[in-house]
Write a protein that binds this DNA or RNA. Structure first.
Lengths: 213, 213
DNA sequence: TGCCTCATAGGACATATGCACTAGTAGACC
DNA sequence: GGTCTACTAGTGCATATGTCCTATGAGGCA
């Protein structure tokens, strides 16, 4: 995937200190970009509509905000924007939910700045990224998915939810033929030969799948 | 699924105290059953071959034992036995792995006896069961799968790994036609209409899918 | 300008999948 | 013995899926 030039970035967080930190990271990564800061979800939407951002860094605990709906709404209105959720909470179910709702990356606030920057770059390169604080007990290998185009990520999300090509076509408002193209490319990229296997890989990588209680 | 009478149970754990506790639970649940105790994996196999058990309670940290291979071997040799893994460790990746290798249930050792008994009954009723110690922070709803027959669980495991009907047929050593029967019944039971959706449901229920480090 | 990738849309074709039937065998239950 | 379910195996058929092909427009890059 050709990485499009970053022109506008929105940092949405109600903690001034953290917002400053994120701005700093964004400015280091993309010196030419304009970084906007937002205090509320409405402000995010206003800023985004005024100048569609290439990336949004969204605090999960945004004041009076329902993460699910907001992320889905953002994804629908700005399909090409990298939505990166940054959060204090590292609960798995929440992570899976926001990823399924359309986020491209989930980054724990507790990570060092350098790691956050790396994760952001990976997302811009087409990867789904989930970075939590390293746990001390058991080290688990994170399978990870290869870089995918935005459309491939959209499609994978839906395939991993068990949708058919027709349903995906309706959801993304494109032709079923086009969906097949994306699915084919996706299967090649994931090195599998069936959508069910793709769903399994997605589950292993952190999209979908959840152990509860 | 008709619950077959429990005649023989094997408790495999190298902690005598815990083994006693498990024996107690088993005897309360199935007064008529013979409960065997095993110290090593070889002993488990010897006992099982002498008298095929309806249920095996297996300590995950068995001396010098590779959980993956042992569980898969047990499952292959005794396809109808309920394999219930009981463990000190509650690491998710480990749980998913043992469930994928053929276990029917995973139960944390830290749970009270009553809950362990309930979980065992549910497994015997055809459910996949994963019970960890309740965490205090965020309560997550565990989707849970409806009761399935042993064959349906076998098939679901493989579907959730992205296998095709042919592959499943080879793996289970039955006809592809028969696999289709099981898949059809499975889809009905899960209330979905495609294997990919079934895989997604399985992922949500704790089979497959893993968020790492 | 030319070259590239990505997203879009469609045709053709082989295979896989899912469903609706029939049917035999084995075990559990009454 | 009669009845029930699970597991097995098959046929037939409609639809879904996946691959290979062509083709167009947008946008980035050299």
């Amino acid at each position: 995937m050709t990485v499009r030039r970053i022109e506008t970035v929105i940092v949405a967080d109600d903690h001034p200190l953290f917002r400053q930190g994120m701005r700093h990271i964004a400015e280091r990564l993309y010196p030419q970009a304009r970084v906007r800061e937002a205090d509320t979800m409405d402000e995010v939407l206003d800023l985004a509509r005024a100048a569609p951002p290439q990336a949004v860094f969204l605090d999960l605990l945004f004041p009076g905000l329902d993460p699910q709906r907001s992320i889905r709404a953002l994804r629908e209105e700005f399909p090409k924007t990298s939505i990166i959720v940054v959060s204090m909470i590292e609960d798995e179910a929440l992570i899976r939910t926001v990823m399924e709702e359309g986020a491209d990356g989930f980054i724990a606030k507790s990570l060092p700045a350098a790691e956050i920057a790396v994760a952001i770059t990976a997302v811009r390169d087409g990867e789904f990224v989930i970075r939590r604080n390293p746990r001390t007990d058991l080290v688990v290998s994170q399978p990870g998915l290869p870089p995918l185009t935005q459309r491939q990520r959209d499609v994978l999300r839906l395939v991993a939810q068990g949708r058919t090509n027709k349903e995906i076509a309706r959801e993304l408002d494109i032709s079923p033929f086009t969906v097949r193209i994306h699915v084919s490319a996706l299967l090649r990229a994931l090195d599998v030969t069936s959508r069910a296997a793709a769903a399994a890989k997605a589950a292993h990588a952190g999209l979908g799948g959840l152990i509860g209680a």
